[in-house]
């Protein structure tokens, strides 16, 4: 397995994000990666609700069609909610991308193997679900195109980044859910 670094990928995904990029990272390491790249009220960190990151981001993308929405999700997260890929592709939100940080592990719970290291291909599943753009990024050369697709290509976009399974140091974001919701709404909707 090639070893892309998850922190570097997320830093690129969120670079110069401005106010028009809305981000939903799934529980565990994806949240820490986003926090390490710089906290923002326009990031809604999921501390639980495993399997729910994609549908949260979909509801947000439908509500905010003029802003780009990126769901940054672990492979374990996506495997728990595969049906949401079909539902998302069917809705076809043009402003929506999923960036999968595929370490082939349930990293947060002790590095158990997920199905992606044992034959499952999330990019192929997303393509089969109906995502118009579904990419697999395994080398440094491909990273820029993968990031650009997440940021700019008309959605729905799905990009798998095959990342190193070495855990990074935790960068802990706020975890009070009501606070995360209120600051997000204040920044995006203009009212709590």
């Amino acid at each position: 397995m090639t070893a892309l670094n998850r922190r570097e990928i997320v830093a690129k995904l969120l670079a110069d994000r401005g106010n028009d990029l809305l981000v939903v990272p799934s529980l565990g390491q994806a949240c820490y990666d986003c926090m390490a790249a710089g906290d923002s009220p326009q990031t809604f960190y999921m501390w639980g609700a495993m399997g729910g990151a994609v549908p949260v981001a979909l509801g947000l993308a439908i509500a905010q069609p003029d802003k780009r929405v990126i769901c940054i999700a672990g492979d374990g997260e996506l495997l728990m909610g595969l049906g949401a890929l079909a539902a998302t592709a069917a809705e076809a939100p043009a402003n929506f991308a999923i960036a999968c940080l595929d370490n082939e592990r349930y990293g947060e719970t002790g590095q158990q193997h997920t199905a992606t290291g044992r034959g499952a291909n999330l990019t192929a599943i997303a393509a089969g679900a109906g995502f118009g753009t579904a990419m697999m990024v395994t080398t440094e050369d491909e990273v820029a195109a993968g990031v650009k697709a997440c940021r700019e290509t008309p959605g729905p976009v799905f990009v798998t980044f095959k990342v190193d399974d070495a855990p990074e140091e935790a960068a802990i974001p706020p975890k009070d859910g009501a606070y995360l919701k209120s600051r997000f709404r204040e920044a995006v909707v203009g009212k709590i």
Partner: peptide, 8 residues
């Protein structure tokens, strides 16, 4: 939840 975050 996502809808509400976006104002819907």
């Amino acid at each position: 939840a996502g809808a509400w975050l976006g104002g819907d």
